[in-house]
């Protein structure tokens, strides 16, 4: 059996990104270290002032949130890569070639997931140095990592869609600014219970909160102890939310890609 061209071509496109990493490592390294900076900032700078109900160990609470946030930040890299290619005409060249049409997104997906795995390894390593530990079984730990990557996979399609819509790497900066409040408005750093009621509800329903809470549960780290339906079904929602995002943004991205020609 021959390997489908979509995968062969997809791997070629992924390799192109890997070549970028080798040729221009600075942005990749900064991308990998940025979440570390955030952890240090929240762990040591603000950490002393953070109080999570039911636990004295903020680091144990913080790290799973930071893992989820690292996945969310990856979306920006996806957006920049996609919009740069679209603007420079590289996407048009791919589309005018007799290659597999899905290879461009398959390749993007492969490269960004590899990048995310690297990002997770770095931030988990940082957490281990700070005293964070996974207390659950091996299966539960792998499950948590899987849910984190699932979130990244879902946000990949959001990133591809936004990158194709914006199509201007400079304007991506504006979208990045919007990503921040969305990532902060969650249970990543603080307990939603400490926010005004309506804001806390939004934070609880943020897909990032579900993944963070599910990771805390599976890693055996302290949660913030919410008793709403969404807080009590974190693992379920950490699966459902990404699937919903994929169901929405995968078709939108494909449609957008096919109609790139405006």
């Amino acid at each position: 059996m021959t390997v489908p061209w979509a995968l062969v071509d997809g791997w070629t496109v992924t390799r192109r990104d890997l070549m970028h990493w080798l040729r221009e490592p600075a942005p990749v390294i900064i991308g990998l270290l940025f979440p570390v900076l955030m952890v240090l900032m929240f762990g040591f700078l603000f950490g002393g002032a953070m109080a999570i109900p039911g636990t004295a160990d903020y680091t144990e609470f913080l790290l799973p949130g930071m893992f989820a946030m690292t996945m969310a930040f990856g979306m920006e890299a996806t957006m920049i890569a996609v919009s740069t290619d679209a603007q420079r005409g590289v996407t048009d060249r791919f589309r005018s070639m007799p290659m597999s049409p899905s290879a461009v997104v398959v390749g993007r997906c492969g490269a960004d997931l590899l990048n995310s795995v690297a990002g997770l390894v770095v931030i988990i390593g940082c957490g281990l140095l700070m005293g964070w530990r996974a207390h659950g079984s091996v299966g539960a730990t792998l499950g948590a990592v899987g849910l984190l990557l699932l979130l990244r996979f879902a946000l990949l399609w959001v990133g591809i869609f936004l990158g194709l819509v914006v199509r201007n790497p400079e304007a991506v900066g504006a979208v990045q600014i919007l990503v921040w409040p969305v990532t902060f408005l969650s249970s990543t750093f603080v307990a939603p219970a400490t926010m005004p009621g309506w804001l806390g509800t939004i934070a609880e329903w943020n897909p990032l909160s579900s993944t963070a809470a599910a990771a805390r549960e599976l890693f055996g780290n302290p949660g913030w102890g919410g008793d709403s339906w969404i807080a009590e079904h974190a693992v379920l929602m950490a699966v459902v939310w990404p699937l919903v995002l994929v169901a929405i943004f995968f078709p939108l991205s494909v449609r957008r890609y096919q109609r790139l020609s405006r």
Binding site: R16, M19, H20, R23, E24, Q87, R88, G89, V90, D92, R93, S96
Partner: peptide, 15 residues
Amino acid sequence: GIGLVGQNAAVDEAL
């Protein structure tokens, strides 16, 4: 059967 040279040089700048 075709080649396209668009208005932008559609090549990878980093490579």
